[in-house]
Amino acid sequence: MDHRAPTSASAVESVVAGTPQSVGSFRFWFEDQRWEWSDEAAAVYGYAAESTQPSTELLLAHKHPDDRALVARSIDAAVRTGEPFCGRHRVIDTSGRVHHVIVVADRMFDDRGLVVGTTGYLIDVSDALEENRQEILDDTLPELVESRAVIEQAKGVLMVVYGINAEQAFRVLQWRSQETNVKLRTLAHQLVNEIPAMGGGPASQRARFDHLLLTMRGDVVAAE
């Protein structure tokens, strides 16, 4: 991933064809705590495109009261350590609706290779996909039948890392498959195969996992 020119969320395919966009991108500069967000990320918070400039204060104001302190500490830690801001929390939009979101991020570098911030995606995993379940199954059933075990393993990893359920984990895999135009089973193989190489404490493992999720491009050929 080129952190100097992160992919706009407008280029990210909808997680399920025909549904509203639920993945937005953002960038956060550590030195002056300056934020940028895509129109899709703004929409999660209830704002129209380009109508509002994001800030740490604004973002924290929209966090669920039970999550606000944790998110504030995560942002402070990111500024102090230069590590990506990431996590799972709840956002309350301008209409009062609660969104369950996952922040998947990686470090952002300047032209000298120095870490200056974090860039990544805000994934809204609030809505169940009941109305789209058959469409998803029609598109992916051959893969699920042929490579069910590895896909289930990949879903399990996502569930543990991000604290989400099986359907939400599948939604994340589906998003990455569509964004990279790589078969879901191939990405699942790569994700599962590279997990054993991760070491360190929980914080560093989460950062490495986010990096893997954002940079994998199906380089590992799925076993037949």
Rank of each mutant, 00 (worst) to 15 (best):
G218N: 01
E130H: 11
P202C: 01
R176A: 03
G199V: 13
V12C: 10
A69I: 07
L60C: 07
R185A: 15
W175M: 15
Q21P: 08
A197D: 14
L191Q: 02
A222R: 14
I151V: 15
A188N: 06
V101T: 12
A207W: 14
E57W: 06
S25C: 01
W29A: 14
S38R: 00
L60P: 04
T140N: 13
T52S: 07
A48G: 06
V16L: 03
V160N: 12
N165E: 11
G156M: 02
N181Y: 08
A5Q: 13
G87Q: 02
D219M: 14
L213T: 00
I151D: 04
S147R: 15
V91R: 02
F30T: 08
V71S: 00
V116P: 01
L114C: 09
V115M: 04
L144D: 05
S126Y: 00
E40F: 04
I151H: 06
D111G: 12
R112H: 12
G82V: 00
E50H: 12
V79C: 09
D67T: 09
G163T: 03
G96C: 03
G82I: 00
F209Y: 12
H100V: 13
R4H: 09
T52P: 04
H62G: 08
N165R: 10
G156C: 02
V16C: 06
